[in-house]
Design a binder for these strands. Structure first.
Lengths: 193, 193
DNA sequence: TGACGTAGAGAACCAGCGTTCTCTAGGGTA
DNA sequence: TACCCTAGAGAACGCTGGTTCTCTACGTCA
């Protein structure tokens, strides 16, 4: 097994375990067992557990945002793309093993004691906010709308994670539609802004 | 020092430390140091750390909801009470040491491994949702509105906790106002529902 | 005053875990 | 075949932290 494949297997195992059980509940030995990569190799790839956690969050950030963007960009209508964000959330919440947002969870667990985790969480949420701002701009809607949509999406992730209510995403989508409509109406009333 | 006073001091210390650093980052010895209550007494009051965590979350649930209700009920107008929820959030977010929602954080940390924590978090969020439903009913607004308000409030807590943006609560309040307005408009269009 | 019960301080015990070390086996090369 | 390098398995090490134990001191009651 070459370096790259080992790295992938380690990160696959890390993602499954860290996301599913929490970071502190998973030992390096668990990672080793699930990945089949020896401890020696594991420590050659990631010098400390902290580095592994960082790599896990970074890789997941890329794939999470990629999956979201792939779904959203299948829609041509700019306002439809905003709503599509919430469609994708609904799909995500229904995936087996869904346990809330990885960054919200890690931040709750280690935000106060690990600068690495706090930074990753902030970065991820900022990137998500920027993405919503882009979508709002493309629909010619004001930037404040993006902030409001962010709150709805974050609230939906938390609520779906804790209460496990599958209808949460649909509620968020309805609310998002109403806020988009309000923003559109405001634009019409004062088009030059 | 009598039993009751010792219990209060332990819970005060637990709240400060668990909320500020996370549950797993705090040892029983830290609780003992800060509270000034000996380990022996501590274990007489709470047989295990898990019990102490449960008592911490229970007591905080009562005081959190009490503080919210006290602020909200100072307002006479039913729709104003809904908006007052977000005023109170803004005030809370600005408190020194604010670090997000204790239940979201504990759930992220231990939701997957501790039934106690998962239950407490669910109970707290359900109670908050019920409260919002009460406020919506008093304003003669539909129950779905409460679900939407819950998402905004949860999203604001998470975003304020991670990004530390103090304007988050104001954004949520604005969005809440728009959703209340939409609900009112819908009611006017179909009053009998 | 003397025996007793209680409470606190802190050591002790034990398990878990991050990290490192040792030993061994296998494979490639002269 | 003999040597050497590498990698893996798993033991070892050191630390932390939950929980319990021991020892001492003090206050109480006969």
């Amino acid at each position: 097994m070459d370096q790259g494949a080992a790295r992938d297997q380690v990160l696959d195992a890390a993602e499954e375990l860290f996301y599913g059980r929490g970071i502190q509940a998973v030992g390096m030995d668990d990672i080793r067992s699930l990945s089949g990569v020896s401890l020696k190799r594991l420590y050659q790839l990631f010098a400390t557990k902290d580095r592994l956690v960082e790599a896990y969050l970074e890789r997941r950030d890329l794939s999470w945002r990629r999956r979201l963007a792939d779904h959203v960009e299948a829609c041509d209508d700019p306002e439809g793309r905003i709503i599509a964000v919430f469609d994708w959330l609904e799909r995500w919440f229904a995936e087996p093993g869904f346990r809330g947002c990885a960054w919200i969870n890690s931040f709750g667990e280690l935000g106060a004691t690990s600068a690495t985790v706090a930074t990753q969480a902030r970065r991820h949420k900022q990137a998500f906010r920027s993405y919503l701002e882009t979508l709002a701009a493309e629909a010619d809607l004001p930037r404040e709308l993006a902030g409001q949509l962010l709150l709805l999406a974050e609230g939906a992730m938390v609520t779906a994670g804790i209460l496990g209510a599958p209808e949460t995403a649909a509620q968020a989508r309805t609310a998002a539609g109403l806020l988009v409509e309000s923003a559109r109406r405001a634009r019409r009333a004062a088009p030059a802004e």
